[in-house]
């Protein structure tokens, strides 16, 4: 039923309200903007954990109130382990982590445990349960985890003596993997040393 009223003599001036030149530009800009956003989101999703380059610096305050800054640990091999008390695989690797720490702690290796999205009470209970002696502190605001693009606990990041990231381990560590990694990193020498 198309009823084009043919008697109309006066016509409205063609006010193409929604298709003026400005409108065209705006619509394109909007579509491109959405696409750009989605593209960026896609890249973010597909990029995995941080595995190379300089390890992002941070300052971590332990449950006892002490603090340590990553850049202040240059010259030592640093093992950064993300964990949480509510994470079952973390419990599996906890004894191994602690025993490896005790083995290497006088050889220029520093362990940092970053407690991710946890409650203090449970975290302290966890530390107590496994007799953990290396440095542990809560990741306030999950900033450190975000910097490292950490996806889920447990994850371990290996930092060489010069502060560069040498890869990650996703999931719990089992013997002898951690020992091997530490030995590799300890054996690194740098030009001019």
């Amino acid at each position: 039923m198309t009823e084009m009223t043919t008697e109309a003599i006066t016509e409205a001036p063609g006010k193409r309200v929604w298709l003026s030149g400005l409108g065209t530009v705006l619509i394109y800009a909007f579509v491109l903007g959405v696409l750009g956003l989605l593209g960026w989101g896609l890249m973010k999703v597909n990029s995995g954990q941080r595995e190379s380059g300089m390890a992002p610096d941070f300052t971590l305050t332990s449950f006892d109130g002490e603090s340590v800054t990553l850049s202040g640990l240059r010259g030592q091999v640093v093992i950064i382990n993300f964990w949480a008390s509510w994470c079952p695989p973390c419990r599996e690797e906890a004894p191994y982590l602690e025993s490896t720490w005790r083995k290497y702690q006088d050889q220029g290796v520093f362990f940092i445990g970053v407690d991710y999205a946890d409650t203090e009470k449970e975290a302290l209970a966890y530390i107590d349960e496994f007799g953990i002696t290396y440095f542990n502190g809560p990741d306030v605001g999950t900033r450190i985890a975000q910097d490292y693009r950490m996806d889920g606990v447990p994850e371990t990041y290996f930092v060489a003596k010069n502060g560069e990231l040498r890869g990650t381990k996703i999931g719990p560590l089992f013997p002898p993997e951690l020992d091997q990694r530490i030995e590799e990193l300890l054996a690194e020498t740098y030009a001019g040393e």
Binding site: L19, I27, L35, L42, V45
Partner: peptide, 20 residues
């Protein structure tokens, strides 16, 4: 992801261009 992204990008821009 990437393949899908290219497809929807082409669809959005192509239909918009045709419409205009």
């Amino acid at each position: 992801g990437p393949v899908f992204f290219v497809f929807i990008g082409l669809t959005f821009l192509g239909s918009l261009a045709l419409l205009l």
